[in-house]
Design a protein around this nucleic acid. Structure first.
Lengths: 242, 242
DNA sequence: ACAAAAGTGTTAGAATTACACCCATGA
DNA sequence: TCATGGGTGTAATTCTAACACTTTTGT
């Protein structure tokens, strides 16, 4: 045990809050909803403690990997997902978070593309499933709290950074884009004002393509131009997106 | 070594970026500055590694204290400061941050009242000193990077949360308040527009008092009403302050 | 009386919000 | 031809930004 650190050490873990967007089954009864749902990925724990309870994907940080890498690794191991956006969220260090011993957990939040939603049965985990954020089951550890913090961060950050594109396919319609914002912000947006705003953003560019195979007029497809955004962003701009 | 955690554990530390506001010596030459300076507290390291270099106050997290408590304790131990505002900033987990061994550090950022600026010689530390953020010395570890992140957070957060009051005395003039914002944001603000804005914030309240002992017209003193802010904040408001 | 900062309104331009209909397409 | 969502503009309002002089007070 080297140098001045004679104390007992807390264990160090990462936990990931993975958000996805799922088209919601348009109940003919409850209409007037955003028609897409924000979902979060949970793992059913195969081991004690909290065996059988749902929890965030996560695990311990190895001595030779950075925190970001640990988060990525856990996501791949436990769900086989590929991640469109990953950022560190907050570090949770309460004393009794884990009933076994002191565990400090660095939480991440991640966004995944809808096409990637296929869930590989993980190695450690019993099973992985998507849950609507508004109807979560009772969670292991303080993971309910972590999801709350992640949701808050997502809702505030999506308004001034173009991260929401991570929840959409590479090519998307303006209606999909609007529904994504409506779903996350949980309020309706005005279609014309929304489109005016998007049209003013140089980094959301129209392609030549349109939707295929829809039983109605096909919508134009757009894409997010990361390079254009980075350029603007480097000149220091601020811009409320929505 | 309990349960499934057979890995070697990273050490876990906290580091604190403590900001203060210092009236700047109004050089008759270089006028037209905000006339206050943003300063950060550094400790001269008494031990290897980086002996003699300046570093952020910080230290290892004990097994029976939360992260917040560890940050508070380090601040008291190393500087004797009392803290007006403390929030977790980010967790730094690169592999070679510390040349001795793997250390993951949870960084905090803190704001202190100007009256509290008296520095007690700490127990561990050689000496503590305030440095202007624009003229920092070369720092130990990745502490330069941590301060950058903290500055960015301060600059963005001060615009929509009333944390800047933590840098002022309990009773302050509108000119002091304006200079505080000018110093942090590093740009001039229009006096009349600024006062109009502040007047619209119900949680910045005028007192009956005025400045004492100044060789000119005395300014009215204001205070920040935390309870009023919390009430508004609970009804979910958003409000750009500046 | 002078120096120094306190205090105070108006106007032009920009951004935001509210609002409803015609169009294109596939079934 | 019908159902479905795609696509479009204008006017009222609110917010933001630019701008300069008078007042108070202590020395």
């Amino acid at each position: 045990m080297p140098y001045s650190y004679e104390f007992e050490r807390p264990a160090l873990a990462v936990d990931c809050v993975v958000f996805g967007l799922r088209p919601s089954a348009q109940d003919s009864a409850a209409l007037s909803q955003p028609s897409s749902r924000l979902v979060v990925l949970l793992i059913e724990r195969a081991l004690q403690p909290f065996e059988g309870r749902w929890a965030l994907p996560g695990g311990f940080v190895r001595i030779d990997e950075t925190l970001d890498r640990a988060a990525e690794r856990e996501l791949v191991e436990e769900s086989g997902l590929s991640i469109a956006y990953l950022e560190q969220l907050y570090t949770f260090g309460e004393l009794k978070r884990d009933p076994r011993e002191r565990v400090v957990s660095v939480a991440y939040f991640a966004l995944v593309n809808p096409v990637e939603h296929v869930l590989a049965a993980g190695t450690d985990a019993a099973k992985a499933e998507w849950f609507d954020v508004s109807t979560l089951p009772s969670l292991a550890f303080d993971h309910g709290k972590i999801i709350e913090v992640a949701l808050e961060r997502l809702r505030s950050k999506v308004r001034y950074r173009p991260i929401g594109f991570g929840l959409l396919p590479e090519l998307f319609t303006l209606t999909q884009l609007q529904k994504m914002y409506e779903t996350i912000l949980d309020r309706p947006l005005d279609k014309r004002n929304f489109r005016k705003k998007i049209a003013s953003l140089e980094f959301v560019v129209a392609t030549e393509d349109t939707e295929r195979g829809v039983p109605r007029r096909a919508a134009r497809l757009f894409r997010f131009d990361q390079a254009a955004y980075d350029a603007l962003s480097r000149q220091g701009f601020d811009l409320e997106l929505i």
